[in-house]
Design a protein around this nucleic acid. Structure first.
Lengths: 216, 216
DNA sequence: CGTAAAACCCGAACAGTGTTAGATAATCCA
DNA sequence: TGGATTATCTAACACTGTTCGGGTTTTACG
């Protein structure tokens, strides 16, 4: 089970994880911009310079924390039962997305509240061949959404039309889920409403609406 | 027309505006976290300490920039013709919201990408009486949305149901618009699709869906 | 083994930051 | 004009990210 890693590699991996963990904790506590390398070093009994053996810069560390948050979001999404009917599956996918934001608001806000840093690692620089959904090649979460939408289309649960195909539909349901997630992550304590029920209702309205054919 | 202000007050207002303007420009250029008071001072030929006559701290300056961005968003929203039919008005309101984000992505991201700083000024601290929509008392933009939704309900363009009333409906359409806005502000160059057309279609689906009565 | 090389970690320094206190210059009002 | 008030600056403090050079430990190899 244990990889054929040398003790050195195992140690390095462990301290790297320690750095990343305290960094994420610090980010949750005070926000990403207030993250201090020196504070991280202090908490794990390292010298500030010592961190540079594991992360080339503060930005690189933040980027790693970003990827980690993205990975955790993926856990929520993959927890949805893929055996559900295509329509229900899309609904639950959106609700899982929102639930991640509700249960980890700091992670969510930080994941999507970062200037450009994010998604540079999952997007090849300057690739013009973004015709369809080779996005998924670099972002497994987005790939999951695309395939779910495609399945709903194939099952005739969702209707396409000219200029409103798989990509546009995926964007639409992502937008709804992302909007609810963002609003909750920010204004949860202020806006008093039954989020779980409201989200499900909203999601159902959207999926159902994508199944009808709108006039004009 | 000119207020009965003393020359002193006019000067103060002017330099205050100068500080705020260069701060916003700097935020657009490098992001809010990279904003440097010293750089602001440098650009308007002031000493760093001089700024503290006008803004008590960096956070206060960022907060002011936030309010300014919120005000500009309000200009977009109030630009929608209120004589439109209630349904169309809601659609156009959402599209104006998204257009603001598309045309001023940095302002939008910074407006909603700030840890708690934002909206502390429009929310009385610790007010438990958030029963309905006295939010609007403090956020005119939200008030506009609420009244638009209420009008659509009164005109029977939108249907309420138990647990899904004005506030929940407003939250839902806000979420959709906010999601599209956020995604575009972040991934505009990467996701290649006709945003204007897609957004309008998505918005119409949602509003139309809110008019039907969903089973179960 | 023993030794060279690589990996690891640290102390000190540099340039930059937000913020404050005290001194100085500019403005207003009598 | 003088005197009081306001506006601004200089200097400093306590931070920050980052780099450089030198020790110390661990690995790899003959």
């Amino acid at each position: 089970m244990t990889d054929d890693t040398t003790p050195r590699e195992r140690r390095a991996k462990r301290t790297r994880k320690a750095i990343l963990d305290t960094a994420m904790q610090l980010i949750v506590e005070k926000g990403p911009d207030k993250l201090s390398l020196r504070e991280v070093a202090r908490r794990i009994d390292y010298s500030p310079a010592g961190l540079y053996e594991y992360f080339g810069s503060k930005d690189e560390l933040v980027e790693a924390a970003c990827s980690e948050a993205d990975r955790r979001l993926g856990i929520y999404l993959n927890g949805v039962d893929p055996a559900l009917p295509p329509g229900d599956y899309l609904v639950e996918l959106g609700l899982a997305y929102v639930r991640f934001a509700r249960e980890n608001p700091e992670h969510f806000l930080f994941l999507f509240g970062n200037r450009e840093a994010n998604f540079e690692h999952m997007l090849p620089l300057e690739d013009d061949f973004q015709t369809d959904e080779d996005w998924g090649k670099h972002d497994p979460n987005f790939a999951l959404l695309i395939s779910a939408v495609q399945r709903a289309i194939d099952a005739d649960v969702i209707q396409t039309r000219a200029g409103f195909d798989t990509l546009e539909i995926a964007y639409t349901v992502w937008a709804l889920a992302h909007g609810m997630a963002s609003l909750q992550a920010r204004y949860m304590p202020h806006l008093r409403l039954n989020y779980a029920a409201t989200d499900r209702h909203a999601m159902r309205i959207m999926i159902a609406g994508l199944g009808h054919t709108l006039p004009e």
